[in-house]
Simulated scan of single mutants.
Amino acid sequence: MTMRPPEPPDFGPMGPPLDSDLTQPVPQHWLNETTTNVAPVEFDDDDYRREPANIRGVVAALGIGALVAVAMGVYGSAHEPTGEALNLAGFSDGLHAKAWLGSVAFVLAIVQVLSAMAMWGRLPGFTAGHGTAVLHRWSGRVAVIVSLPVAAHCLYALGFQAFDTRVLLHSLLGCFFYGLFVCKMVVLTRSRTPGWAVPVVGAAVFTALVGLWVTSSLWFFSEFGVSL
């Protein structure tokens, strides 16, 4: 008489009891023949690999900004100052116009900083919106436009001077400011820019502008009074 192996028990839809030996192969008749076979999901490691930051782009931007700063310093030193280059209606002379336009650029730079802090969520009690971004862009554009006549007056009429500490510092900060500004514009056009690049360069631009205002407009108003 031939002995047949016993049929595996049918545990029903609830599956085998908790104390069953799960290391044994599952009999075919336990499987639901109507189950749809799903192809295994393949994962690409590149999907989880973060793209490297474009450090070379930041270095290139710094190099371009440095060239601009050096070029301005060389031109200011080699150029023979004319003594007068800016004569705007409403101002008594070029120095008054330079002091006031520099102050306008300084105020707009403060707006730039506050709007940037709001957009980065660093301004307590204020939620940034679309208007904040528009204000940030246009305050920067107007600040640069306002500063251009001041830069032209400094380079063409006064040149790079160093007869005292304040004047030397002002001349250096002027070259430093426009070099950093060009660097910031280049950084903004680069892809995969590191997250720290724009805030750091922007803070440096603002610091340079504050130094320019202190060594020019604030000094001028302190010495000659607030007048047009």
Results as ranks from 00 to 15, higher is better:
Pro8Asp: 14
Pro8Glu: 09
Pro8Thr: 11
Pro8Lys: 10
Pro8Leu: 14
Pro9Tyr: 11
Pro9Asp: 11
Pro9Ile: 08
Pro9Arg: 13
Asp10Gly: 10
Met14Gln: 15
Gly15Thr: 06
Pro16Thr: 12
Pro16Arg: 15
Pro16Glu: 13
Pro17Ala: 06
Pro17Thr: 03
Leu18Glu: 13
Asp19Thr: 01
Ser20Val: 00
Asp21Lys: 04
Leu22Gln: 08
Leu22Arg: 09
Thr23Leu: 04
Gln24Asn: 04
Pro25Ala: 09
Pro25Glu: 14
Val26Ala: 08
Val26Asn: 13
Val26Gly: 07
Val26His: 10
His29Glu: 15
His29Leu: 03
Trp30Leu: 00
Trp30Ala: 05
Leu31Gly: 05
Leu31Tyr: 09
Glu33Trp: 02
Thr34Lys: 15
Thr34Asp: 15
Thr34Glu: 15
Thr34Met: 11
Thr35Glu: 15
Thr35Leu: 14
Thr36Tyr: 07
Thr36Cys: 05
Asn37Thr: 02
Asn37Cys: 02
Asn37Tyr: 12
Asn37Gln: 04
Val38Gln: 15
Val38Met: 13
Ala39Ser: 15
Val41Phe: 13
Val41Leu: 11
Glu42Val: 12
Glu42Tyr: 03
Glu42Trp: 06
Phe43Glu: 11
Asp44Val: 01
Asp44Ser: 14
Asp45Pro: 09
Asp45Trp: 03
Arg49Lys: 14
Arg49Met: 10
Arg49Thr: 15
Arg50Ile: 10
Glu51Val: 00
Ala53Val: 12
Gly57Ala: 05
Gly57His: 06
Val58Cys: 07
Val58Trp: 01
Val59Leu: 12
Val59Glu: 08
Ala61Arg: 00
Gly63His: 04
Gly63Asp: 07
Ile64Pro: 07
Gly65Val: 08
Gly65Met: 06
Gly65Leu: 11
Ala66Glu: 12
Val70Ile: 14
Met72Leu: 15
Gly73Glu: 11
Gly73Val: 00
Ser77Glu: 06
Ser77Thr: 09
Ser77Lys: 09
Glu80Ala: 06
Glu80Ser: 06
Glu80Gln: 06
Glu80Thr: 07
Thr82Gln: 01
Thr82Ala: 03
Gly83Glu: 11
Glu84Ala: 13
Ala85Gln: 05
Leu86Lys: 02
Asn87Ala: 14
Asn87Thr: 04
Leu88Gly: 00
Ala89Val: 10
Ala89Ile: 03
Ala89Tyr: 06
Gly90Met: 10
Gly90Arg: 10
Phe91Cys: 07
Phe91Asn: 12
Gly94His: 02
Leu95Ile: 01
His96Asn: 15
His96Ser: 10
Ala97Asn: 10
Ala99Lys: 14
Ala99Val: 05
Leu101Asn: 09
Leu101Glu: 02
Gly102Tyr: 02
Gly102Trp: 01
Gly102Phe: 02
Val104Met: 04
Ala105Pro: 11
Phe106Met: 15
Val107Thr: 03
Val107Trp: 03
Val107Leu: 15
Val107Ser: 07
Ala109Glu: 09
Ala109Gln: 03
Ala109Ser: 11
Ile110Arg: 01
Val111Cys: 13
Val111Pro: 01
Gln112Val: 04
Gln112His: 07
Val113Gln: 14
Leu114Cys: 03
Met117Phe: 06
Ala118Arg: 12
Ala118Phe: 08
Gly121Ala: 05
Gly121Gln: 09
Gly121Trp: 08
Leu123Ser: 06
Pro124Arg: 03
Pro124Met: 04
Pro124Ser: 03
Phe126Thr: 10
Phe126Ala: 12
Ala128Trp: 11
Gly129Arg: 02
His130Lys: 14
Gly131Lys: 07
Thr132Gly: 08
Ala133Val: 04
Ala133Ile: 01
Val134Glu: 12
Val134Arg: 14
